[in-house]
Simulated assay, not measured.
Amino acid sequence: MSGVRNLESLILTRHGESVGNVAHQVAREALGDPTERVDIPERDADVPLSERGRLQAAALGRRLAALPPDERPTAVVASPYLRALDTATIALTALAHPPRLEIDERFRDRETGVLHGLTAHGVRVRYPEEDERRARLGKYYYRPPGGESWADVLLRLRSAYNDLDLDHPGERVLVVAHDVVVVLTRHIAERLSEAEAMEVERTPVGNCSFTRWVRRGGLLRPAEYNDTAHLSEPAESAAP
């Protein structure tokens, strides 16, 4: 994996389902009455997990605890956003000797600036020029006013992984973050092109999914991607 030469393994997960995820899903399903803005009172950094999201985080913890001792994470780094921090905290309770939880703001979600909270319909109605510019530039390079492009996020992730590599040589690191972080980490790891990365992004990253690279032959190589098998356990399927 480019930029990560000393880690023994790297595990990534997206946070559990948040109340924001639920609100956006409801907006997408409002076909008869298209919604322009999703009403979420909290700032993005403070959006909490839903009850289902907390159950997903517990299931992730069981997945981690079920790993052989020499495969369990020895270091954990999370986005500072509440939904990621709570996911990490809940999951780590399943480990007998959990590592200390570290926070790195470079693993935060992509900032969408003036488009924050708007649905695709809302962007077309309120910012038609931005909708046109996004279509012309493409998702990878489009930067909304006051926000970030995918390429911007990629730059901070490369920096974060370089530091992780220096700070945790020979360790097994778990990163708890957001879907854009998972996709762009694969972009870095597999040296994907813009088109290849955007093709990966077409498949949604599951909440509390399990993605891992492990060291083989001196290099970190992909082992699992976007695996959600652990979420089909009885405790998870009982969620509302």
Rank of each mutant, 00 (worst) to 15 (best):
residue 11 I to A: 05
residue 12 L to C: 04
residue 14 R to T: 08
residue 17 E to N: 04
residue 19 V to T: 15
residue 21 N to H: 06
residue 22 V to H: 04
residue 24 H to S: 01
residue 24 H to F: 14
residue 26 V to F: 12
residue 31 L to P: 00
residue 35 T to Y: 01
residue 39 D to W: 01
residue 40 I to H: 04
residue 41 P to G: 04
residue 43 R to F: 06
residue 46 D to I: 10
residue 48 P to H: 00
residue 50 S to F: 04
residue 50 S to I: 02
residue 51 E to V: 14
residue 54 R to L: 09
residue 58 A to W: 03
residue 59 A to G: 13
residue 62 R to Y: 05
residue 69 P to E: 10
residue 73 P to T: 05
residue 74 T to N: 12
residue 75 A to I: 02
residue 79 S to W: 10
residue 81 Y to T: 08
residue 83 R to C: 10
residue 84 A to F: 14
residue 84 A to T: 13
residue 85 L to R: 15
residue 85 L to N: 01
residue 89 T to Y: 11
residue 90 I to N: 12
residue 90 I to E: 07
residue 91 A to Y: 08
residue 92 L to V: 14
residue 93 T to N: 13
residue 94 A to D: 10
residue 95 L to K: 13
residue 96 A to K: 08
residue 96 A to I: 05
residue 97 H to N: 15
residue 97 H to W: 11
residue 99 P to F: 05
residue 99 P to Y: 07
residue 101 L to S: 07
residue 104 D to Y: 05
residue 106 R to T: 04
residue 108 R to L: 09
residue 109 D to I: 04
residue 113 G to C: 13
residue 116 H to C: 02
residue 116 H to Y: 08
residue 119 T to V: 08
residue 120 A to L: 13
residue 120 A to W: 13
residue 121 H to M: 10
residue 125 V to F: 08
residue 125 V to Q: 15
residue 125 V to N: 09
residue 128 P to Y: 15
residue 128 P to D: 14
residue 131 D to N: 10
residue 132 E to P: 00
residue 136 R to L: 14
residue 138 G to T: 13
residue 138 G to S: 13
residue 139 K to C: 01
residue 139 K to Q: 08
residue 139 K to G: 02
residue 140 Y to G: 01
residue 140 Y to V: 01
residue 146 G to Y: 09
residue 154 L to Q: 07
residue 156 R to D: 08
residue 156 R to C: 11
residue 158 R to N: 04
residue 159 S to G: 03
residue 160 A to W: 07
residue 160 A to G: 03
residue 161 Y to E: 07
residue 172 R to C: 05
residue 173 V to Q: 05
residue 175 V to R: 01
residue 181 V to H: 12
residue 183 V to E: 01
residue 186 R to I: 02
residue 188 I to S: 10
residue 189 A to I: 10
residue 197 A to K: 05
residue 197 A to R: 01
residue 203 T to K: 02
residue 203 T to G: 00
residue 207 N to L: 02
residue 210 F to K: 02
residue 216 R to F: 03
residue 217 G to R: 06
residue 217 G to K: 05
residue 217 G to L: 09
residue 220 L to Q: 07
residue 223 A to R: 03
residue 223 A to I: 03
residue 225 Y to M: 11
residue 230 H to P: 08
residue 232 S to M: 13
residue 233 E to A: 15
residue 234 P to F: 10
residue 237 S to K: 12
